[in-house]
């Protein structure tokens, strides 16, 4: 089994880590260079983790488990106005990132108010492209219960956050409800506030585990990191994409950040060692996000094999 970990350390000699991961049959999911520091998100076979830990120690780096690595989470606020940003939304997004998730922050066009709040079809479809969503609500329980309508048509697990204590059973469409983080006008600094952020990460982790369990019942034909590797190798233009993460991983596929109309055939033609092409084991369609390419791997019940 592959284990998600995050390496933080100096840029000097980091390629030793990259080489070791490749030799062990793992994957480098993301590479962030900040001056002389580097952060690597890695999937490594769990039985070989000790080897990586030893090398990280030798290089004076830090290796921690990143339970959300390889997933994409939408952090949704009613709008992108000063009422919801930056404090709560940025704190949550940042904290999810520290645990390895790729987060996208989204403000709804008309999510404000109580009676007038609404979400449109495009926003719903865009959120559905993620693996989990966090909806950030405010301090009044009446509003939190009422604004359930915003996420009741979303098919991925939704973690709702708000101020007051509400029993999760009262929000039947939410996967979980995390209290004590309503609308605040300061950054999360106190231990209790950080504790709440931990609870959000834990809830998102459970939501992802639930999705993983349901995928395991009918496994995907191949794993998303393998597709990422093959696309990176065979569609070299992806390295010239301006996005910080040119191939974003989901639990059921990848999003390739290249224009759909130009590159869809190149992506579909990506060939694996087993002789199959990506177009045969996955659906390739335009993403709701810009004009990117969305690759969704077909389950083994449809293709008849797993590799």
């Amino acid at each position: 089994m592959l284990e998600p970990v995050m390496f933080t350390g100096g840029l000097y000699k980091h390629d030793l880590i990259v080489e070791l991961v490749e030799d062990l049959g793992g994957y480098i999911l993301q590479k962030n260079v900040a001056q002389s520091e580097i952060i690597l998100l890695i999937l490594v076979p769990s039985e070989d983790k000790a080897a990586l830990e030893a090398l990280a120690k030798e290089l004076r780096g830090e290796l921690v488990r990143a339970p959300l690595a390889g997933t994409e989470t939408a952090v949704v606020t009613p709008t992108l106005a000063i009422h919801h940003l930056p404090h709560t939304a940025c704190d949550i997004a940042e904290y999810l990132r520290r645990h390895g998730s790729k987060t996208n922050m989204m403000g709804l066009a008309r999510g404000v108010g109580r009676e007038i709040a609404q979400i449109n079809e495009y926003e719903t479809a865009l959120i559905n492209e993620h693996d989990a969503a966090v909806f950030i609500y405010g301090n009044f329980q009446e509003c939190i219960k009422h604004k359930e309508k915003l996420y009741q048509n979303i098919s991925i697990p939704v973690v709702v956050t708000g101020g007051p204590q509400i029993d999760s059973k009262e929000l039947p469409y939410a996967f979980d409800y995390v209290p004590s983080i309503g609308r605040v006008a300061h950054r999360a600094k106190k231990a209790t506030e950080i504790g709440t952020l931990d609870r959000i990460v834990e809830a998102v982790g459970r939501a992802l585990d639930k999705t993983r369990a349901s995928i395991a019942k009918d496994p995907l034909t191949t794993s998303p990191p393998r597709i990422m590797d093959a696309v990176r190798e065979q569609v070299p233009d992806v390295e010239f994409s301006y996005s910080p993460l040119p191939i974003a991983l989901n639990l059921t596929g990848v999003r390739v950040k290249l224009p759909y109309s130009h590159y869809k055939d190149d992506v579909a033609a990506v060939k694996f060692d087993e002789g199959v092409r990506l177009g045969e084991i996955a659906t390739i369609r335009p993403s709701q996000m810009k004009d990117y390419i969305l690759v969704r791997i077909l389950p083994s019940s449809e293709t008849g094999f797993v590799f």
């Binding site: 301090n139 009044f140 101020g163 007051p164 309503g182 609308r183 300061h186």
Partner: peptide, 16 residues
């Protein structure tokens, strides 16, 4: 209504 928490938090928010 039953919004004691909301009132408390709004107080902090206004001060901030």
């Amino acid at each position: 209504g039953d919004e004691a928490f909301g009132a408390k938090k709004y107080r902090e928010l206004i001060m901030d």
